[in-house]
Design a protein around this nucleic acid. Structure first.
Lengths: 177, 177
DNA sequence: GGGGCTTGGTTCAAGTTTGAAACAAACCTA
DNA sequence: TAGGTTTGTTTCAAACTTGAACCAAGCCCC
């Protein structure tokens, strides 16, 4: 089967995406490192916790939310715990599990730094997009996410079904991830 | 000045983008690590070199193309050199500069692995997009790239103007970055 | 109710990235 | 043309990521 190379249009799109993705992630990391003393991923972890009604999540679920490996998360949580922004808690009904819970200090950091983060996201992304483009962005990447999650070769920690959320909480959605 | 939080639409778009970006980069890394023994970034470096008429580029220019820091590139090139896929060459007219040049072996690796890479990009991205969406993708991220490159806080290695390319070469564009 | 599979989480070593500092060569400019 | 600045690249230590291996605790099922 001969390769279906990218068309010129696809190539342009791909290169533009790759370039922007690198630059954007760098810009976010730089800004958050400055203002919050942590890279974007770590901020996202806090933001995801703040989204929960009780500000806590099992490690596996948190990994699922943030789309990172359990191993990576372990390391990150350890660091954030050292910084006093997160606390680990045991799970009653499953002795294997442990929770990561946002501390008050963690919440405070989030509240203090969320505005700057959102401002950056705006400055580099949304301020340059029309309403339609925002819609396109969502459609495109929601679909891509679906495709990627369906990928069987992906090392996944099968989502836990026994609890569905609805939630929303201070900073949280506001914190923008 | 009060924070302009993201609208619900923007939030959805942002989350979709973040999720897809993580998953996509992971998928590409995994596939290339498998088939080429290197992460996506390293493949991109080779691909960018193969795009040049003479298969070589000054370090700074290569860093500019790939949107990474000089420091990161130094490390990557050192590794690829160890693997025999790249060779460092001196610059005649500027003793400070050094070139990274694709070796025959590097070119061979690229040619061998490009089809699988393109296939992956297709499977997870383009196969799910309409022609219009491909266009939107390019527009959106071209604009975002422009915004990010205009950012003055960015630690940039000012692009060198004294040579403009036109080029295209085997694998190259085909290699898809 | 005891083996065997699965799941949740961590650990370890090797690899990669970061940002600041160091160096050297080129480029002013007085 | 000497001295100061800029530019091209590397180096270093600390931080982070990776993937495989590991350990426990639950689950299954005969």
């Amino acid at each position: 089967m001969t390769t279906r190379w990218l068309t010129p249009e696809e190539q342009r799109a791909w290169r533009a995406y790759i370039a922007a993705a690198h630059l954007l992630e760098d810009a976010l990391d730089r800004q958050l490192q400055q203002d919050a003393g942590m890279p974007h991923l770590y901020y996202s972890i806090l933001a995801n916790l703040s989204d929960e009604p009780d500000h806590r999540l099992r490690m596996t679920d948190l990994a699922e939310r943030t789309k990172i490996t359990r191993s990576r998360l372990t390391y990150a949580v350890t660091r954030l715990e050292k910084d006093g922004l997160i606390r680990r808690e045991n799970c009653n009904w499953d002795k294997r599990s442990s929770f990561a819970a946002l501390t008050d200090e963690g919440m405070a950091v989030l509240e203090r730094t969320a505005p700057g983060h959102v401002e950056t996201v705006r400055a580099f992304l949304f301020d340059h997009l029309t309403k339609e483009q925002v819609g396109q962005l969502e459609e495109i990447f929601t679909e891509v996410t679906r495709a990627l999650e369906a990928d069987e070769t992906r090392p996944s920690a099968d989502e836990v079904p026994w609890r569905r959320r609805s939630s929303s909480s201070p900073c949280s959605g506001d914190a923008s991830e």
